[in-house]
Nucleic acid binder design. Sequence first.
DNA 1: TTGACGAGTGTACGTCGTACACCTACCGTG
DNA 2: CACGGTAGGTGTACGACGTACACTCGTCAA
Lengths: 236, 236
Amino acid sequence: MAVQTEPVRRTPLTRDRVLRAAVAFADGIGIEALSMRKLAKELGVVPMALYKHVANKEQLLDGMVDVVMSEIAPPAPGSDWKGAVRHRILSARRALLGHPWAAQVIQTRSSPTPVVLAYMDSVIGMFRTGGFSVDLTHHVMHALGGRMMGLTQELFDAPPSPGPQAQPVTPTEGAGDYPYVRELAGAVVHDEASVVGQGCDDQFEFEFALDLLLDGFERLRQQGWSSAGRSGPARP
Amino acid sequence: MAVQTEPVRRTPLTRDRVLRAAVAFADGIGIEALSMRKLAKELGVVPMALYKHVANKEQLLDGMVDVVMSEIAPPAPGSDWKGAVRHRILSARRALLGHPWAAQVIQTRSSPTPVVLAYMDSVIGMFRTGGFSVDLTHHVMHALGGRMMGLTQELFDAPPSPGPQAQPVTPTEGAGDYPYVRELAGAVVHDEASVVGQGCDDQFEFEFALDLLLDGFERLRQQGWSSAGRSGPARP
DNA sequence: TTGACGAGTGTACGTCGTACACCTACCGTG
DNA sequence: CACGGTAGGTGTACGACGTACACTCGTCAA
């Protein structure tokens, strides 16, 4: 009989195993359903066992973010600053898209982990070596904000919530008395029906906004913009 | 003796009173400390009494967002589209700043309340009457994202968390081995020390990013940009 | 007078995060 | 081989939390 790896002895927990299990579990059941107790059960262990590897739930969430961050591709060598930044950010976005809970969790962290700091550092570095002053880089990073990590600054997943509950009243439901919202929603649906599920192409929207910002950054860089005058990007 | 308003009879609860109390309470103790039970105690009432006026905690949060939204100034009449949008968004931001919890709560709502929809409708209307096509307005709204409501797409409140816990090691703590982060942080602190508390002027950063976007929108509008070509804002 | 109704109450359940004391299998050292 | 420290896993317990459900009680129309 097998002497090694006797099944009665579970493979021991590690911080890494806990974090990966948490990520997979959240991918499956959603972040709001993730609890220390359920995660422990998933790992075949008593809840308190987890606390030998993470200090508390907040640190668990921090670690989960780090796992997602580790999926971001390393910086592409060479090329212009815009291409480099664009490539990195789109890679970050791809990592996030695989974990629908990640965006929300990232936004509720109160301070960055070293992994996140390292990522920010590398993005800042791209601007600096691309010819941006410290001053401009600073403002540019603020302007990028969460988009730097691939977060879409969306307000809601679906505009009027087509939830499972019955919604009576008129067939113009949802957009109700909001003519402009309805106009937009209608146009999106009818437009080009190539996009599969929902009415609009999130990837396109993300790149649209990203390129709009990057183009704006480039313009400011070229004209040697500085915040000394303190009057926003429109300054000639 | 006073016959009316005998103090033994509390002024009755209403949905409005519950929501306003919740907003004030969250302003005071923070959103994560707000619970149905504590809110009930604050109102001198048993926890279950709240459920006669709000369906559950999610609806309470929805209602709290609506209260904040109601503080946004109505649209300014006349003027160009950019001034109108800018004014409205900065007003929204002012409303949010009075309630530090609001940004986080808004971002965890799964669908917009009618009040939020109405606000979005009015912003969309400004673009449309300002000469933006339905198509461009759609993408522009995505690009604005949460910034439309005054949300700053910031990743963290304070970069390296100067928490109350003692942090030994080198005096270059925080920025540790992140040279570009340190460069930025150092420059911000030394720059113009006019800004009071923290190292940088959030209002300036918000307007910087907002104007960058609005200017980009204007450029696209002027050149009659359309998503038919599907290649982002940089298209000539 | 009555009886329906809406606001507020009381009790209870299941879930959560986690403090604290405990066991126990393993290891390097004597 | 004996031994004692230690890291990892356990068991019990506590004080939150949201909220279902059955109730009381004051008010007001019929």
